[in-house]
C-alpha cells in the first residue's frame, strides 16, 4: 500500500482523474475548433479532387477505368477514400503536434503535469484524435457519394458493423499516429510522411478490393501489414457489400491485433519521451 492511497480515497482519486481527463479533452476541442478550417481543408482536398478527376471528369471525357463485374469505379473507391481520410487524419492529428511538442517546444509538459497517470494523457490524445478521424471519414462521405458522374451504389445492411469499423479505424489510426510521433523528430517529419503515410494510403486497397490483387500475389500478401487494408475492406463490407470484400472475422481480428500492438508502441514511446 502506497503513502498516496492513504491521502486520497479511491472515489476522490477517480474523480480527480476524470476531471483532469475532461480538462484535456476541452483543451483539444478548443484547439480543434480554432483550427477547424485548416483541418477540414486538409481532410477534404484529397478525396474531393480524387473523386472529381477520376469519377467525374474521367467518365465525362470517356477515359474510363476498367472495373469489371458491372460495378462502377466510383462505387469501389467510396470505402477506400473514407478509410484513407480516417487514417490520414488520425495519424496527422496526433503525430504532427506531438513531434513538435516533444522535440522543439516541450509544451506537452503542462498536460503531463496534470494530476492523472501519465499514460492517461496519451490515451486522451488517442481517443480525441480517433474521434476527429471518424469525423473526417463522415465529412468525406457526401463528396465521394455525390460528385461522381457515374452511379454510386451504397447500401448499409449492418449498422453495428459499420459503426464498429469506423471506431476501430479511428483508434488504430491515432495509435499509429502516436507511435510515429514518439519516435520521429521535427526534422524527420516530412520524411516519415513520405515513407509511411503515403505508401499506407496508396497501398491500402483504396482503389481496388483486396481480392482483386490476386494476380500480383506478392503485393497481395505484402499489403497485409497495412492497417488501411483492413479499414478499407471493413468499410467495403459495411457500405458496398456487392463489391468483393474480406470476411468480417479477418478485418476485425487484424484491426484488433494491430490496435493492441500500436497502442503498446504508442504508450511505451510516450512514457519514454516524457519520463527520463
Amino acid at each position: 500500500m502506497s503513502d498516496g492511497s492513504m491521502t486520497l480515497a479511491p472515489p476522490a482519486r477517480r474523480a480527480m482523474y476524470a476531471r483532469a481527463f475532461y480538462g484535456l479533452i476541452r483543451r483539444d476541442m478548443r484547439v480543434a475548433r480554432r483550427e477547424a478550417f485548416q483541418l477540414s481543408m486538409r481532410t477534404i482536398m484529397n478525396p474531393f479532387l480524387f473523386v472529381f478527376v477520376f469519377a467525374y471528369v474521367f467518365p465525362k471525357i470517356g477515359q474510363q477505368f476498367q472495373s469489371g463485374g458491372g460495378i462502377s469505379f466510383a462505387t469501389i473507391i467510396v470505402p477506400g477514400l473514407i478509410g484513407s481520410a480516417i487514417i490520414f487524419n488520425g495519424i496527422s492529428a496526433v503525430a504532427l503536434p506531438l513531434v513538435m511538442e516533444f522535440g522543439a517546444t516541450r509544451e506537452i509538459e503542462d498536460r503531463v503535469m496534470a494530476p492523472l497517470p501519465t499514460a492517461a494523457v496519451a490515451i486522451e490524445k488517442i481517443v480525441f484524435s480517433a474521434a476527429q478521424a471518424v469525423l473526417a471519414g463522415l465529412v468525406v462521405f457526401p463528396f465521394v457519394y455525390l460528385i461522381p458522374s457515374t452511379p454510386v451504389s451504397v447500401h448499409v445492411n449492418n449498422w453495428p458493423l459499420l459503426i464498429g469499423v469506423f471506431l476501430l479505424a479511428g483508434l488504430v489510426s491515432s495509435a499509429l499516429g502516436m507511435a510515429i510521433g514518439t519516435v520521429a523528430n521535427p526534422r524527420q517529419i516530412g520524411l516519415v510522411f513520405a515513407l509511411i503515410v503515403i505508401p499506407v494510403t496508396f497501398l491500402g486497397c483504396v482503389y481496388y478490393p483486396w481480392a482483386r490483387l490476386h494476380p500480383v500475389l506478392w503485393l497481395q500478401i505484402l499489403v497485409l501489414i497495412n492497417p488501411l487494408v483492413y479499414i478499407s475492406e471493413g468499410l467495403r463490407t459495411a457500405l458496398t457489400p456487392t463489391v468483393p470484400h474480406m470476411h468480417p472475422w479477418a478485418f476485425f481480428g487484424a484491426l484488433l491485433a494491430l490496435f493492441a500492438l500500436l497502442m503498446w508502441m504508442a504508450l511505451s514511446g510516450f512514457l519514454r519521451r516524457v519520463i527520463d
Partner: peptide, 23 residues
Amino acid sequence: ADAPAVKRSIGVVTQFRTLDRSL
C-alpha cells in the same frame, strides 16, 4: 508510488518555455 497525488499538490516552473502555444 503515487505521482498523480504528488502532481496535485505541486506547481512547477521549468527553465524551458512550456506554455501551450495553441492557446
